[in-house]
């Protein structure tokens, strides 16, 4: 039982996680014409293999390309800023004693659980008053706020692991405090910061509610919203296979990040409790 359990378990996990991914890839190779007629089945039926045609069409779609640009730009900026702000806060939480520390953590937790939809009405109203409706800034601000809890949470867990005495030790050895910080602390803290950044990026990349509520043109519309409004060459037929191709393209960055950094992400999500 024990001998067999593991391989079965692994197989289960792999099927569970990858089957839908394989399916959406398979769907993205079905010819659009055959989708209109109906092309059921996991794999494209005989003679309905579209090759790269769907991908080429999606790639030629400037709205979608613009959405990729928006998503990359907005998510990266929000991630960078959010991690910077979170690093300051997490350092304070991990190393300093100050009044209101528990409050910060509870607040972060409360915000992580906040019902996002209840904010979009008033936020829309505020953003149009400030003139940042349908702009990158208009999305970066809420993304930062909503990724901060996750980033603070992860970073403070990481920072508590850092042997800060080493900094003092280095100073005793004659290093300036800046050198001590740069040579000793930065290398130790970097993996944590990096992990927090990846998790933050995932969150921003995934957001849909703000994406559809606070934008109205391709000026700032991110990928998830763009997918929901995706139009193929023929507006009257739902371009399932084109959409699948677009979905696959939108997933590629995630897969690349996951492939390279899986160890760090798992460590981040389990707050460093599980070593690689």
């Amino acid at each position: 039982m024990k001998k067999l359990g593991m391989p079965i378990g692994v197989a289960l996990i792999l099927i569970w996680c990858l089957l839908p991914v394989v399916w959406v890839i398979s769907l993205s190779f079905k010819a659009p014409d055959s989708i209109t007629v109906g092309n059921p089945g996991f794999w494209p039926a005989d003679g309905t293999w579209a090759g790269w045609e769907n991908y080429r069409q999606v790639w030629d779609n400037d709205q979608f390309k613009r959405a990729i640009l928006n998503s990359l730009g907005i998510s990266l900026i929000a991630t960078g800023l959010s991690v910077m702000v979170a690093t300051l806060a997490a350092y304070a939480i991990a190393r300093l004693e100050f009044k209101g520390k528990r409050m910060v953590l509870s607040m972060a937790l409360a915000i992580a659980m906040f019902p996002v939809v209840s904010l979009v009405g008033p936020l829309f109203d505020m953003w149009r008053a400030f003139g940042i409706y349908d702009t990158w800034i208009g999305l970066i601000i809420p993304y930062m706020s909503f990724t901060l809890p996750l980033a603070i949470w992860t970073l403070s867990a990481f920072f508590r692991e850092i042997p800060w005495e080493m900094e003092q030790a280095a100073q005793v050895d004659g290093a300036t405090s800046w050198q001590a910080f740069r040579k000793v602390i930065v290398p130790l803290a970097a993996p944590g910061v990096f992990t927090a950044a990846i998790l933050t990026f995932f969150f921003a990349w995934n957001d849909f509610v703000f994406g559809i509520s606070l934008t109205s043109t391709e000026a700032a519309r991110p990928i998830p919203a763009s997918l929901a409004f995706f139009t193929g060459p023929d507006p009257f037929t739902r371009p399932a296979s084109l959409l699948a191709a677009a979905a696959v393209i939108a997933t590629i960055p995630i897969i690349v990040i996951v492939l390279i950094f899986q160890r760090k992400i798992v460590a981040g999500l389990t707050s460093g409790a599980v070593k690689g």
Binding site: R128, Y133, S216, A228, T231
Partner: peptide
């Protein structure tokens, strides 16, 4: 040109929100 979504409901939402924002 600026392209709107496919469904009439979505088109209305996009335009109305822009216009409501003057």
């Amino acid at each position: 040109l600026q392209q709107l979504p496919t469904s009439a409901t979505d088109q209305r939402i996009q335009l109305a929100r822009r216009l409501a924002a003057e």
